[in-house]
Every structure is written in structure tokens, then in C-alpha cells.
Design a protein around this nucleic acid. Structure first.
Lengths: 384, 384
DNA sequence: GCGCTTTGTCCGGGGGATTGACAAAGTAGT
DNA sequence: ACTACTTTGTCAATCCCCCGGACAAAGCGC
């Protein structure tokens, strides 16, 4: 029996941290709320909640915001999160452009700066990251919580970029580099996984325990949240569905094999197969119902639908959200996805599965990077 | 924000239970071991370990078994689990035969009884379960821990059988019924999931954090362990890969759709496609290299390999074990599975993925039912 | 005005992990 | 054989922090 990390003790400090994160989450999710309500929701005593809220108020993370209506007794004092109590530096390392921004605790972006990558080598690209961080950092008006980075490619759990798509980065320990250079906690993760966490944390009232977010753009990737946690798998490669072979007789992929999902369903692949000059033109002609491009778009949708059917069949995850530039293809594409996913999976399962349009989401990677950091530093999502 | 179960507090009692389970797991996995070693492994203090071990010894679950070699100081007293300190009643509700047995804490089966189902209706089948339990219970020589049941079909988390394959059981709350009738804790779960937990708990020195066990017999199903826990999904249907459509133009499945994995890869399907009189004959002719049946066997293997590629691509789980009667098909079949799984997934991923022959495993469901109960009652696997 | 509820806080109690000390029982060196 | 040093297991004291009860403040309904 070699592995023993699963033998990790529980301490009083952990109990405290858990309950502190619990109260913070309650404030975060349930808006202005009384201490008594938090106590009822969490099962903690009013005493403990009062103490934990006092801690949060001392840290400036929460504040009393007046009284609520009485329900037959003393009217409660409502406590709310101070959304701007902390600032997060977020980065989206796109394939051609790097973007940095500031975000508050709600993922509201304020200062956005971009830098073009054109022609820079790996070292210079890292320099660009540093410059962007220094640049937006000057605009911060509340204490910095840390740096969150989303990037294409494979990133392992400690924030080392295994390989980047079109940079000569290999085994670059970016999280550690950023922590040392800027003196702040840093998180680096794959962009699809960031997108999943953004959808989970900022996605509205529903917060499904299990959620798969599929990002379809230049590549095809997924972020998988299981039991309220991002799932990484044995090699932090979970969600790399773009290179599952869907058609062994298909065309060659840049990964060297034939018929990967990306060769059928990624934006460049669909544009090439449809023979249009640009993706914009493809969207226009798809919307117009052009018969010369529709079959290609539908085939791409069906390929994604089949992949979803495989996922839902195996995992029984009922919440699927699709984001990325490809969502501009609209109804025909989504219908193809839903039809194929439904046709290929068990009836009751297909009936309850929701495949949602998450939009093109230019900011989804920035938001995801922010969500990653909030999760890590404040425990805003479950992590134990 | 409707769902609030994720806001569950941590208490001192939970901390204690967690650490108690921790010590038990250490004894279970690491054999006779000193209190000091357990303290080092878990991070607990020697004081706490001593106290927790004393609790276990008082309950009869552990005992001192002499002294170990000195490493420069006082020689340690070794503590070991008493394998026979408790008895578990396990059941395998097969499609034609029900089997009951007693198991100790190591999953060693002692008293085995079977009952044929032939012609009984749903109510009589439940009676048979009761009789079998009463029957083996008389042979128990140590305190009973509870009842574990493995069954085909869909079972939800509270032990209610949603639908059974060839019994007229629908929404039968079997776990509750057994608890009331026999006055013991009861766990009911799908047989593939039971098999997964058996492989995880009793599978030897390796205990992978993530593990997929695929059971190929009369049906095709999977049990999925992620982060040391069985994963159920949103509707406790995770692992139902038998009805993912792999060939939309394939033959009709009993579920009503066409080309499900089961129509290609289950034992009855392969026997039918090969045209042999029995599965035994198919195995013999496959082993002999008969060209008339090999293509069918290889096609079945490739279908499973493709399904595995989809799973590993999505989840990056590197440990796959295949169990069930179909494993008797041996090397040709396994080679087809491994080749296809490798061909359809990313290079580095495929290289590290191990697809292991878990054997035909007549007892795997019984062992799994035992493992389920040990997990639930003693916390022998991670559950928080 | 009076009784009842609800809220938030204060205080004592207790569970349980931690720390430090110490005796027991080894090994290694001289 | 004697001394110095280690390691182990346990005991007592301490500390962290959750809990339960009590109580004042402040509302509601009659």
C-alpha cells in the first residue's frame, strides 16, 4: 500500500476553517441574511455564527446592513458580503492575445488590459504576463487576494503548464513563478476548467452539484465539476475530450491521430469543411439556412451530442452547459447536439438532461480564473 | 439558490469519527503496525492514536500482537485488526439465483447458501431474501455489522431498487425493508458498483484514487470510483454504459433503442452473433483461434475499448479493471480492448492507462456488497 | 399593557486534539 | 558493564472551539 495521502487527519483548526467557509458561502449565496438564518441553514448555533460573522466583519469581508422584517419577534440584523472587499487579478492567456483584468468577489470585471503575443518567444511571453499584472495591479482599490490564470493546454494541479498550444512553454511552473515575482497566491488552470468553475460559481441561482461545461472554439475541451469540486483525474487531464477519436476514418488531427472530435467539431474544422472564408460568414449563412453549409454544421453538432451522450451515460450528470465562440452557430447547431445526445442515451436520463447555451463568453476564462482563486483562498466552493 | 445541503457544518464529533476511521484504515491497510507509525502516517499525535486504538481494542476490533524490532529505541508494540471481529451478511441477487454468505472484515466468505428464483413473483423473491438471511445468520460467530446487497438494475442512494431486470420489483425500498425485518443496517447497490468497490477495497496493494471497473456479463455496466468514493451522479445512474449507443445502425436493444453497447458486447449478444450453442463453446473456439468466431469477439472487444477511450479521455482515469464472465474470452478479447482504447485516446494518456483483467469473479458482487457495508459502517474507505 | 417569539450575546461546560514530561526499554559506543 | 542517546507509550495540563442555557432587547398579537 504505497499511497497514504488519504490518511489525513482532521483538526480543530480545520473544523473552524470549514465552518468559517460555510458562513462565508451562506452570505455569498443568500445575500443579506440574518445570523439566525445562517445558523438554521448550516446547523451551527447562533453563538458560533455570531462569532464567525464577527471575524468576517473584522476582516472587512462582511458588514451589517440594517434590520430585516420581524417574523413575530425581535427583527433580525442583516449581514451582507462586501463585494469589493478584495480584488483578484485575473488573466486569460489566449492563443494570440493575453488579457488581464481586476475582479471583485462577485466576478465583476473592472480594469481590463490586453497585450498581443505576435512573435514573442516563450520568455518574452512570460514578461508580457508580468507587465500586464503590474499594469492592472496599480488600479486595485482593495487588498489583493491573488492571481488567477486561465490558459489553453494541459496544466497540472500545482499550476505547472505541461504544454501550451502555440508557445514554446514546456513544464513551465507558472504559478510558482508568479507567486515569487508578485508576492501573491497564484492559481493556474486550463481554460475549459476555468470556464466550468465560472459557470458553477457565477452561473446564477442554480448551482448544480455536478456540472459539465464544454467549451467549443478553436479547440474542444470540457471542465467537469463533480460533487461541487473540479475533477482533474489521475493526471489533471480530465475534460480533454477534443482528442477522443470519434471517426477512425476521419481526417488527420494536429495531435497525430485521425478523426479526433476536434477535427470534426472545432470552429476551424467546421469553417474548413464548410468552405467559408471566415467563421462570421459561416454563422451568417447558417442563420440564413444555407443548405451548402448546414450539413457540416449539423454533423459537427451531432459529434458533440454523441460525446455528451457518452459522458452522461457514464456519469449521469444532468447539467451540461456549452460555451465558446461556436455557440454563435445558434439553434440549428444546438438542436443537432440535443437531438443526438437524446437519441444516444437512455430515455429517463435524456429526458432530465439539460443542455444549456452558455453564450460565447469572451470573459468566461477571466471569470473562471477569478473563481479558481476565490475557491482556493476563501473556500467559496466546497473543497474538503 | 435552492440547494443548501452543501452547507453542512463540521463538529467535534465528526472530527473524532474521521480520525477514528483514519486509525482503523491504517490498521486495515498497513497490517500489524505500531501506534507511533500510525501517528506518523496520519499526522495525529501519539496521544490521540493511543486513545483511538484503545477505543478499537475495547470494541474488540483491534488487538496488540507482540513487539516489533527496535529502530534505536524502545521496541514498539504492534497493533493489528482482528479480522473476524465482526460479521457481514452479503447477498448477490443474480438474475436466476440469489446467493447469501457471511464475510469477515477482510471479505473472506465462509457460509454460502443459494436459492433458485425460478417462477417466484416479486413478493416471493423478497421472502427468499429473508430466508437466506435468516439461514446464514445462524452461522455467524461474531457480532453482525449489517447486510450488504448487490443487484443488477438501477438502485438509488437510499437503497431503493428503481427497476430490476427480470423481477417485478419497482421502486422497492429493499434497504429499509431489510433494516426493519432484521434489525440491522442494510445497504443495497447496483452490482457493477459493488464490483468496483470490491476491487478497490480488496484488490490488493494498489488502491488507486480513481478507478473504473467494467463488468461484462449478461449486461455491461461500470462502477466508477473517483477520489476514493463511489460516484453516483445526479440520479444514481452513473456507470450505466451498457445503453450508450455505439452504432446507430445496429440491432434493436431490449431498452427500445438501436445499437446500444450491450447489443454488441454483452455475453448473450456475442454468443448470438457468433452463432455458437453456448458461451462455453464460444470461449473454447475463441481460445482455439477459430476464424469463424474471432471477428465477432474482436468487434465486441473493440466496442468496449472505444467506450473506455471515451471514459479515459473525459475523466483521465488511469486504472481500468474488467470483470465478469466475458473475461473468460481471454487474450484475443483483451487485446482488442486495449488496442482500440489506445488507438482512440491521446498518446501519453493511453500509455499510462492500465486495463486489467479482474477475472470472472463469481464472488465479486458478494465481496462488493460486503465492501459497501464496511464503508458505510466502519468508514473503511473515505466518505467525507 | 401583557404574554409570547425571535434575535443576538454572554457564560459555563465539555469534547477532543496538542503539548510537554516521563518512565520503560531498547541501541551504540567506550 | 556502564553511559549516552533514541524511540515508544502514557499521563497531566492546556487550549481550541462547538454547544446549551440564560437573558436582555425588541418586535408581534390580543
Amino acid at each position: 500500500m504505497a499511497r497514504t495521502e488519504y490518511l489525513s487527519k482532521a483538526t480543530h483548526a480545520q473544523t473552524r476553517a470549514h465552518n468559517a467557509a460555510l458562513v462565508l458561502r451562506a452570505l455569498y449565496d443568500l445575500g443579506p441574511i440574518s445570523r439566525a438564518d445562517v445558523a438554521r441553514l448550516t446547523g451551527l448555533t447562533r453563538t458560533s455564527v455570531g462569532e464567525l460573522v464577527a471575524d468576517l466583519e473584522r476582516d472587512g469581508l462582511a458588514q451589517d446592513v440594517g434590520r430585516g422584517p420581524s417574523t413575530g419577534g425581535k427583527q433580525p440584523t442583516l449581514v451582507a458580503l462586501k463585494d469589493d472587499a478584495r480584488t483578484v487579478i485575473t488573466l486569460d492567456l489566449g492563443e494570440r492575445t493575453f488579457t488581464a483584468a481586476l475582479a471583485n468577489l462577485r466576478g465583476e470585471l473592472t480594469t481590463k488590459r490586453t497585450g498581443e503575443l505576435e512573435g514573442r518567444d516563450g520568455h518574452q511571453a512570460v514578461q508580457l504576463v508580468h507587465e500586464l499584472i503590474d499594469d492592472v495591479r496599480r488600479e486595485a482599490t482593495s487588498p489583493l487576494l491573488g492571481i488567477g490564470v486561465g490558459t489553453p493546454g494541459v496544466v497540472d494541479a500545482d499550476g505547472t503548464i505541461r504544454w501550451a498550444v502555440n508557445l514554446d512553454w514546456q513544464d513551465l511552473p507558472l504559478a510558482r513563478i508568479l507567486e515569487e515575482r508578485h508576492g501573491l497566491p497564484a492559481v493556474v488552470a486550463n481554460d475549459s476548467r476555468a470556464a466550468a468553475l465560472a459557470t458553477y460559481l457565477f452561473g446564477g441561482d442554480e448551482r448544480p452539484q455536478n456540472l459539465v461545461v464544454i467549451k467549443v472554439g478553436r479547440g474542444v475541451g470540457a471542465g467537469i465539476i463533480l460533487r461541487d469540486q473540479l475533477f482533474g483525474g489521475d493526471g489533471d487531464g480530465a475534460g480533454e475530450i477534443g482528442h477522443v477519436v470519434v471517426d477512425p476514418d476521419g481526417i488527420e488531427c494536429h495531435c497525430g491521430r485521425f478523426g479526433c472530435l476536434e477535427t470534426v467539431a472545432s470552429v476551424p474544422a467546421v469553417v474548413r469543411a464548410a468552405g467559408t472564408a471566415s467563421f462570421g460568414e459561416l454563422v451568417d449563412r447558417t442563420t440564413a439556412g444555407d443548405d451548402r453549409v448546414l450539413p457540416v454544421v449539423l454533423a459537427a453538432g451531432r459529434a458533440i451530442g454523441a460525446a455528451i451522450a457518452g459522458l452522461t451515460g457514464a456519469l449521469d450528470v444532468r447539467h451540461i452547459t456549452i460555451v465558446g465562440s461556436a455557440t454563435a452557430l445558434g439553434d440549428p447547431w444546438f438542436s443537432a447536439i440535443r437531438d443526438e445526445a437524446g437519441r444516444r442515451s437512455l430515455g429517463p436520463l435524456a429526458r432530465d438532461t439539460r443542455i444549456i447555451d452558455g453564450g460565447t463568453g469572451e470573459d468566461v476564462t477571466l471569470l473562471g480564473a477569478c473563481a479558481l482563486l476565490l475557491t482556493r483562498e476563501l473556500g467559496l466552493t466546497v473543497h474538503r
